[in-house]
Amino acid sequence: MRHTLATIGLGPLLLLQGRHVRRVTPRLPEADGEREGEIGQGPPLRLLIAGDSAAAGVGAKQQAEALSGRLATLLAPDFRVRWKLVATTGHTTAQALQQLRELPRAAYDVVVTSLGVNDVTGLTPTRLWLQQQRQLVNLLREQFQARHILLSALPPMHVFPALPQPLRWYLGSQARRYNLGLRDWASQHADCEFLAAEFPGDLELMASDGFHPGPGAYALWAEQLAARIRQRWSTR
């Protein structure tokens, strides 16, 4: 109810602030580098990373210092990692679903997703977004035989320096609703895991646009994902 009232009461201001942010925020490119490869030694681990600009490495210059490269490197001492990145800047969950549907069938042991920020800024209702997340998980199970699905939480949009108030509060509140719903749903499914990566309150970890992770944030995110993956797969 509070969110609905805020939408009505603050609507014109939020719209103006949103347009201003889009106009003045620098557009950073996706990280350069390979989007699939094989690295490491040990038991095989097939890894898919899918999602939006954060998955694509916006805020880092090279994939090696973005999520995919750091995660594969961290897992390499324990596994022979065959990894693939499927991510596009600006993608909503619905767009990521369509992108994945167009890929050939394959098999992955672990899938990491990063989606939701563009759904928040696109004002996708929470119920619809959670429905799309369920569709995404079903697709990963059926088309990609995913055995362990790590659903990354939305970042703390309520502290993004690129967003002015009250837009920052408004989008941050919606991101929290998404996270709560996704966490509760994931807890009911043994093959799914919700990961709310923990970051210190250091804005220097962010990219220069004040909106995306920087290399430091990618490193922390990858470390926490790697720990979850090792915990589940090292005993298999």
Score class of each variant (00 low, 15 high):
Asp202Pro: 08
Arg82Ala: 08
Leu5His: 02
Gln231Thr: 14
Gly42Glu: 01
Asn179Ile: 10
Gly214Arg: 02
Arg134His: 11
Val112Gly: 04
Val137Pro: 07
Ala227Gln: 14
Pro156Glu: 15
Asp191Lys: 00
Ala196Lys: 14
Leu182Phe: 00
Leu136Ser: 06
Leu74His: 03
Leu180Pro: 01
Val86Thr: 00
Glu30Cys: 12
Gln17Val: 00
Tyr218Ala: 04
Asp52Phe: 00
Leu140Gln: 10
Arg147Tyr: 06
Arg147Met: 05
Gln99His: 11
Gly90Val: 14
Ser208His: 07
Gly11Asn: 12
His212Ala: 01
Ala106Leu: 04
Gly57Thr: 03
Met206Glu: 05
Val110Ile: 09
Ser173Ala: 13
Gly33Gln: 13
Ala64Lys: 02
Leu75His: 06
Ala226His: 02
Arg141Ile: 04
Asp119Val: 10
Glu65Asn: 08
Ala190Gly: 08
Thr121Leu: 10
Leu15Asp: 14
Pro104Trp: 05
Asp52His: 06
Leu150Tyr: 09
Leu75Cys: 02
Leu14Thr: 03
Leu130Tyr: 04
Ile149Pro: 11
Leu182Val: 11
Gly9Met: 12
His212Phe: 09
Arg19Lys: 10
Ala54Asn: 06
Ser173Thr: 10
Leu205Asp: 01
Asp32Val: 04
Tyr170Val: 02
Leu67Pro: 02
Arg141Pro: 03
Gly201Arg: 14
Gly216Thr: 08
Leu182Lys: 02
Leu74Trp: 03
Arg168Gly: 13
Thr73Asp: 11
Gln133Arg: 02
Asp202Arg: 12
